[in-house]
Computed example of a mutant assay.
Amino acid sequence: MHNRIETIAQQSLQNNEISHEDAIYLSQAGNDEVYDLFYWANRIRLKYFGQTVKACSIVSAKQGTCTEDCAFCSQSSYYPTAIEKYNLIEENKIVDAALYAENTGAHSLGIVTSGYSIDNENELDRVCRAISTISRDAHIHPHGSFGVLTREMADALAKSGLKRINHNLETSERFFRNICTTHTYADRLNTIYASKQAGLEICCGAIFGIGEETEDRIHLAFTLKKLDVDSVPLNFLHPIPGTPMGNRSVLTPMEILKIISLFRFILPDKEIKIAGGREKNLRSLQSWMFYAGANSTMIGNYLTTKGKPGEEDLQMIKDLGLELERTSNDEMI
């Protein structure tokens, strides 16, 4: 198996698409073979990104009372969770979050609002004004996640200075109906298409440990490759009491590292970002995410769950001999 993993890796190192059969083969690596998988995933990361990694932060700008029924989500109004709920926060608080994230070493700030979409014109205007201020006053890239978007919404966000939109597919198309019934996979794809047409970069990934099979993970990875997204955030279920998945067991650290490596083989030159659920799922093996192929991570808190203090993550990156990518003044022009 070792030789075949190396053969597949050579294709990824040349940015040639591996086959579906090869992806299945990689996903079945076991025992000592997983270390060979990690070794080559790391080699692919080094070729395309060197020793540089990115860190991003998010701010939960509007939280709770979401109309959608995503089975893993603490913010859905369908489920009795104990999270704090609030409407869109003031523009100055969003800007303050960006300045704080910049000071902690983050390359970008993701502004995240709960709900199917941006509710109305006033809410869109407020978000756009905050993005414009961040673009002018902070040396950090403003990113955003606002649910389903029309082309007009995407255009307005891009014009305000938004650099990248986050809109996850979450899982494969065939499995999606098992985790959400209030909107469709096509709704999510259409938001990605609209955002691309508006000139926005695309951050699109998934959540794992929600009952999906290996085939779902592979199908999703190839879908993201076909969409040519810029960044792929990988989230791992952090079970929230009150949700339908509140009692699910979490994935093992080694299974998660294999998922990261699989995505690096399939998406060799794309940013792979380790996001929600990292601390709970990877536990003492969090630093291994980079050697399994990731080149980006979130720092600080998530939407409704706590992360590690940013200082600890930055120290981990330094201890690994990796270099944190900063946002330069030239990038902001």
Rank of each mutant, 00 (worst) to 15 (best):
N3V: 06
N3Q: 13
R4G: 00
E6I: 03
E6W: 01
E6V: 05
T7Y: 12
T7P: 00
A9K: 02
Q11F: 04
S12N: 10
S12L: 09
L13S: 08
Q14G: 06
N16L: 13
H20Q: 13
D22N: 13
I24R: 11
L26K: 02
Q28P: 00
A29R: 00
A29M: 05
V34Y: 00
V34P: 00
D36E: 14
L37S: 01
F38L: 15
W40S: 01
W40K: 01
A41E: 05
N42A: 05
I44N: 08
L46P: 00
Y48M: 04
Y48H: 15
Y48R: 06
G50H: 03
Q51V: 07
Q51W: 03
Q51F: 07
K54T: 12
A55H: 12
S57V: 01
S57M: 15
S60K: 10
S60L: 06
A61F: 07
Q63S: 15
T65H: 10
C66Q: 08
D69T: 08
C70M: 09
A71L: 06
F72N: 08
F72L: 13
C73M: 08
Q75R: 10
S76I: 06
P80T: 01
T81C: 04
T81W: 02
A82N: 14
I83E: 08
I83R: 10
E84Q: 14
K85N: 12
Y86D: 07
N87Q: 14
N87M: 04
L88Y: 05
E90V: 02
E90R: 12
K93A: 07
K93L: 11
I94Y: 03
V95E: 06
V95D: 04
A97E: 01
A97C: 03
A98P: 03
L99D: 00
L99K: 14
E102D: 04
E102L: 04
N103Y: 04
N103S: 14
T104W: 02
T104Q: 14
G105A: 07
G105S: 09
A106Y: 01
S108C: 03
